[in-house]
């Protein structure tokens, strides 16, 4: 079936940033490996969430998918076409097919534009529809995201945070995208508003068959929204799995640490300080071998020697094949 082909596919994607130094800052003295060998795919109608601590490379990954950055190595394909080979028409099609909703609706909407103009802008850039048809489409989109069409004449400051995020979603939808990158879509919103936006995103996915790549840190929200969850650490995937499987049985020690640090809303569960030591090291000089080994509570001597590969252990589930992970899996199986 055609729908089994991935909509988005990343193959061994790397993004390194040169770090200059020396007397006049003219020499390249190293590279920050923000993203270092990332492979995953997203299918139509699915949500893949990327989780990990700040500095793990999830935002760089989002920027690479949006083609706001070019990978240093590796390939990103959308609908089977590599992004680095797109011609002008192909690029225009891509820009219409992939949209983004950002964390902060206070800074992501132009304060000098009316909401109608903000929502119409992608259509103008894409040269779609006549002026009158665009206005009709704006009205339709506003209704679709739960705003009133009369509000098109207002400016962003006249809306609350939740309403602004609805405006950002309407803007993303205006060019009928297939994939929307959601960068922490609710973390700037009030608690009582978050459920409204999450429900809206899910409804739109069901109705329009959208795919989402969501970056988020709140694991309960991730579990609720995602079909697949990718866990990143220092630019690499340590584990990727169907969402429910990942939370039911986190396998990699880093996933386990993230899970144990997520605070449940069940009273009386003891505060388990993660067995994790210290904080995330610099991606400029990542540790040798398994990048997680200096913080890993299960690390063995050999963990610093060889870099573990990501292997598929169940359908749709891949985890870094580290000796300590193997030991954890066999211990769990007993």
């Amino acid at each position: 079936m055609a729908t089994d082909a991935p909509l988005l596919e990343l193959t061994d994607v790397r993004k390194h940033y040169a770090v200059s130094g020396g007397p006049l800052g003219l020499k390249t003295v190293g590279a920050v490996r923000a993203v270092d060998g990332l492979s995953f795919s997203v299918r139509a109608g699915e949500t893949l969430s990327i989780v990990g601590e700040s500095g793990c490379g999830k935002t760089t990954t989002a920027r690479l998918i949006l083609k706001l950055e070019e990978p240093t190595a590796g390939a990103i394909s959308f609908e089977g076409r590599r992004l680095d080979t797109l011609d002008a028409a192909g690029l225009r099609h891509f820009r219409g097919s992939v949209q983004a909703v950002f964390q902060d609706p206070w800074s992501s909407l132009n304060p000098r534009m009316t909401v109608g103009r903000i929502i119409a802008e992608p259509m103008i850039v894409q040269a779609r529809l006549s002026r009158q048809d665009r206005q009709d489409r704006v009205a339709e989109l506003m209704t679709q995201v739960g705003l009133r069409r009369e509000q098109a004449e207002l400016y962003p400051h006249q809306f609350s945070g939740g309403q602004r995020q609805r405006i950002a979603i309407a803007r993303a939808l205006s060019v009928d995208p297939k994939l929307i990158v959601l960068d922490e879509p609710v973390s700037a919103l009030d608690v009582s508003i978050r459920a409204q936006i999450l429900n809206l995103l899910k409804d739109l996915q069901d109705r329009l068959g959208l795919s989402y790549v969501m970056i988020a840190h709140h694991l309960a929200t991730v579990r609720h929204m995602s079909h697949h969850v990718a866990v990143m650490y220092l630019g690499q995937l340590v584990e990727i799995a169907p969402g429910r499987e990942l939370f039911r049985r986190p396998l990699h020690p880093y996933t386990q640490a993230l899970y144990s640090a997520a605070l449940s809303t069940h009273v009386g569960r003891p505060l388990s300080e993660p067995a994790l030591k210290g904080e995330i090291p610099s991606p400029l000089n990542p540790p040798s071998g398994c990048r997680f080994h200096p913080r890993c509570p299960h690390a063995l001597a050999e963990c610093s020697a060889s870099e573990p590969a990501l292997v598929e252990i169940e359908p749709g589930r891949r985890v870094q094949d580290c000796s300590c992970v193997r030991r954890l899996i066999s211990a769990a199986a007993k």
């Binding site: 009582s192 999450l198 899910k202 694991l219 609720h224 939370f247």
Partner: peptide, 24 residues
């Protein structure tokens, strides 16, 4: 009550979150 129901839980799956309409 509404606020507690609207927060997703780490260990429990719900199809749809309870949502409080309007805003503060």
């Amino acid at each position: 009550e509404a606020l507690l129901r609207s927060v997703p839980d780490l260990d429990v799956d719900v199809e749809r979150l309870y949502s409080i309409e309007g805003q503060p």
